[in-house]
Design a protein around this nucleic acid. Structure first.
Lengths: 113, 113
DNA sequence: CGGGATCCCCCCAGATACTG
DNA sequence: CAGTATCTGGGGGGATCCCG
């Protein structure tokens, strides 16, 4: 697994870096937020991420899919093609982390203001 | 889930993004790991981060200090100058998050291997 | 509709040298 | 020892066009 290789410091594996790498990317965290309680289509995600280009959405989604955090489903029985994305079990296991970080961010913002 | 209501990208504050921004940076997470149980000097940090340049260490440290995650202490009573870095209370409050992400990374690596 | 391929620009990080 | 200043290139990401 390549994520494992890049997460070493002086030969040791650093799981924290693995996590940060999985979440790293301008749009990944918010994509996970969007998919937390529902599955969404490519165009729905795009609309909900103002400022995100199609190129970037494609890249982030393919990385998340490669990391087995989300899963793509393609419905070819109609044209135009419909695709939808949803969290895998691995992705769902990330939710408590996401919530924890969100709550820390809230506390942090309040503390500094 | 309600904690994530504010996680949008339409001009509103996104606490999760705030957290990810604070942690974002090639060396920040591992710097926090290093400072978790001890304070360290600049040169000690540099030695423990193989591959990190002095320039990058300086940048990451100044960002963490600006974000009030770590605190620098300068001892000018001797030459050469001695500086040391340690976590602030805000930085310490990040530890559970770090540990959570580290544990998730461990599980993730094991699951995929 | 849901992407991929290509071009191109700008910024980030490495290398190197200098300093209090 | 603990940084800063400057130069430079390589790559990430935007814009645009194309395709099944």
């Amino acid at each position: 697994m390549d994520a494992l290789k890049t997460s070493t410091r002086h030969g040791e594996i650093c799981p924290l870096d693995t996590t940060l790498k999985v979440l790293d990317g301008k749009w990944k965290s918010i994509i996970l937020c969007r998919l937390m309680n529902q599955e969404l289509r490519y165009s729905e995600l795009l609309k909900s991420l103002s400022g995100c280009t199609r190129r970037m959405l494609s890249l982030q989604l393919s990385q998340l899919e490669h990391d087995q955090i989300i899963q793509k489903e393609i419905d070819t029985s109609f044209t135009p093609i419909k695709t939808s994305y949803h969290l895998t079990e691995l992705g769902k296991s990330l939710i408590p982390i996401i919530i924890g970080m969100d709550q820390w961010g809230e506390m942090y913002i309040e503390t500094l203001s």
